[in-house]
Write a protein that binds this DNA or RNA. Sequence first.
RNA 1: GCCGAUGUAGCUCAGUGGUAGAGCAACGCUUUCGUAAAGCGUAGGUCGUGGGUUCGAGUCCCACCAUCGGCUCCA
Length: 656
Amino acid sequence: MPRITLPDGKVLEFPQAVTGQKIAETIGPGLAKRAIGVKIDGTEILDLARPLANDCTVKIITAKDDDPDALFLLRHSAAHVLAEAVCALYPGTRLAYGPPVDEGFFYDLKTPAPISEADFPAIEAKMQEIIAANRPFLRCEYTPAEGLQRTAGDIYKTDNAERALAKGSSNLSFYVTGTPGQDWEDLCMGPHVPSTGWLKASKVMAVAGAYWHGDQNSDQLTRIYGTCFADEKALKAHLNRLEESKRRNHRKLGKEMDLFHIEEDNPGQVFWHPRGWSIYVALQDYMRQKQRLSGYVEVHTPSVMARSLWETSGHWDKYRENMFTTESEKRDFAIKPMNCPGHLLIFKQGLKSYRDLPMRIAEFGSCCRNEASGALHGIMRVRGFVQDDGHILCTDAQVESEVAGFCRMLTEVYADFGFGIDRIAVKLATRPAQRIGDDATWDRTEKALGDAVVAAGLKYTLSPGEGAFYGPKLEFTLVDAIGRGWQCGTIQLDPNLPGKDRFDATYVAEDGSRKNCVMLHRATLGSLERFIGILIEHFEGKFPLWLAPEQVRMLPISDDQLPYARQIRDRLVAAGMRATIDEKPDMLGAKVREARLARVNYFAVVGGKELEAGAVALQNQAGEKLGTLSVDDFVAKMLTEIAEKRLPASMTGAKG
RNA sequence: GCCGAUGUAGCUCAGUGGUAGAGCAACGCUUUCGUAAAGCGUAGGUCGUGGGUUCGAGUCCCACCAUCGGCUCCA
């Protein structure tokens, strides 16, 4: 006699086991019509047709685009419809694995022939056919023996079944779309929507390779991505967001704005053009200043270091295939992939006292990593890059306050780019299975990192088992203007590298004994290349004035005003600004158009009237006319905006 | 590295085995103009690279390189 508690606290009693469908009908016919599943006790999602025998709380899930549970159900079910369509079109297809993911779902399949985008229309047509037939999703349960018999001969599904049983399932469930024994079925734990008719707003998105269980040495499968929403409107909005991402693509804007290029013969390394480099320099100057004010000392260490040093650090053993190596006079060298060994070598020069700690060492360290060719991605993922790297050498007791200090600096920095607290997601990666150090130390250090995050006014979520083998770490993800996440900052505790077996970085403690320090690896922006890529997409190329490659363009109306325009340009440049003149004989309309398309922040029109008055007529990139200003006021206005690092009104940090 | 797709002028793109094209940009001349495109003209290409098939290849086949979307990895 189950007692069903509803979200509003109301309790329904039923004489025997009851389905979600029945509960929905009891509440009201309108709800029953829109119901697609139930959520039990706030955790487990079940089919509407599953009988509930025990007391529980039940949320009826309806097909809504703002409910993650509804999207989960719709997408999981849409994955089945996709797989069924592919099986129907390409006989011999074998199924591997088809879960919902963040933006939709995928299904990994082994197809008899390669699938390409050209196949999408046929697949979508078949899916719509299955959807139009509105066949029910029927759950069929079998004993383990019966179930394994049904998957016999199919290595992927047998493997899935065995895993399910190993995890403690007492039976194996299959889902049939339609009539058992007649229609398509798939081993699946569920849950699903009641019938295929709910899946009208589905779309096949992409095809890609994937490994069985993500294992490179295992079978290569075909992964087909799709998405599904509760209605067409949300699907359309999703497709628009993808278009928006394309419009903001840093490779496209980088070319359009003449910021950088990558040579085809030299993959993974960036050639920064003057305009791109000005952003780079502005960013680096900014971080240099921030770090100086946060008690860092800046250093510079060699790009190429001897094998023996990489052996001490452990990189020669563990990181070799990611390093570019070279040799000279029969000695091996490697281009540095990280800056930590160099910083430890600087620390080790001379005798350090506990009074010298914490020592915060920063470097804009130019690193090279031999990334797999397929991993390269514009300037976001390259083989040569510069990190705003830093290492804090300190005592155990100083870890928490150092991490808190870092978090404070990081939130200040991110806020200057428009990433307020609500746009920063923090993950605490905790002890992995393979690790060094005792549990008491892990307990203490994980807590220290977590407390430090909270002390900086941030919240965090746990990433269990994702820490390094030597210590826990924090990862900071920024949420950009269109809601995408980018992991940038990190701070990681490392007692290993400064330890006795590695660089043996010691200090003289209060009691005169020698003790090893611990080290915090940390970066705020991550790689400057990648961070600029993120900023290009975040700002859609419309940088705030302090970062912009071309802050002001003078637009003389005719050649008569050229000397005057040059005078103003020279004054702006002398004040440290990036200002140019459009000296072409074009008409003003054309000059304005070009300046706007080039994403110049401000353009100052000077014609006869302005020359006469010693003024400029100002307009900004957005096309707003800002009136006529005296040259003095104009320069002051620009310098103020730069000094304040002012952001566009739409980018001040709150989520849009 | 693996799977799939793509690669034609500086850029965006057309070109289904028969003389390599357009728009924009560039350059020249004319125009000196008031807030998103003045007019006319000129030049620009070993069609990613290398092989092959063919009387003939941008187009068909093979290999390689790079890029894009994923996988793996990661800042």
